[in-house]
């Protein structure tokens, strides 16, 4: 039921944004299509099952987006600095980090965020280990690398997805 409602809401928001209008007939068509699509696609899916919709969860979602945008801008400045430096200061390597997150959706979000933050790119995910290509390896140890890369996002995702 929860999955159904969330899928329906996402489809409705996309429909309204695409049409850019609130006319009742267009809204009605969108609602009918959205109900059918979410019934059809969401029989077995449990993608949003472990999401917490408490006020705290929603607050942390917004805060997480803010942190994410700041990290994205920081990573771009970092990339610009490296690319334009004549010496090309890179020290690449693949390191392993561990995550405490259980939910699949949260892990997906974490992997995406890691890819978009300074100097890191998720290469492979096996169970709870992420293998990350790091453009400037500061520490090869699992624990300290996890602290450096994962922790700043993990604490928010942990609250949102329990």
């Amino acid at each position: 039921m929860k999955n159904f409602i969330i899928t329906f809401l996402i489809l409705m928001v996309v429909w309204v944004l695409l049409n850019n209008t609130f006319q009742p007939d267009i809204l009605l068509v969108g609602a009918v299509i959205a109900v059918f699509l979410s019934l059809f696609m969401c029989k077995r899916c449990e993608l949003f099952q472990d999401m917490n919709f408490t006020p705290k969860g929603i607050f942390y979602t917004i805060w997480f987006l803010g942190v994410f945008m700041v990290e994205l801008i920081k990573s771009n400045l970092d990339v610009t600095k490296r690319v334009l430096n004549p010496a090309l200061p890179i020290k690449p390597g693949i390191v392993e980090v561990k995550t405490k997150l259980k939910s699949k959706f949260a892990r997906m979000l974490l992997a995406n965020s890691i890819t978009l933050t300074p100097g890191t790119l998720t290469v492979d995910v096996v169970d709870d280990s992420f293998f990350i290509h790091w453009i400037d390896v500061k520490d090869e140890d699992i624990k300290s690398a996890s602290k450096e890369i994962v922790e700043k996002f993990e604490k928010y995702l942990e609250v949102i997805y329990g």
Binding site: N76, V79, V83, L84, L88, P92, H133
Partner: peptide, 26 residues
């Protein structure tokens, strides 16, 4: 533009992907 310069300058495919992803997104 910086992203495309990075694509030319970086030595291997993984570093090129790094530059490509971040800079093109922003």
């Amino acid at each position: 533009l910086v992203a495309s310069i990075g694509l030319l300058r970086m030595p291997d495919v993984y570093n090129r992907l790094q530059v490509g992803t971040k800079a093109t997104t922003l």
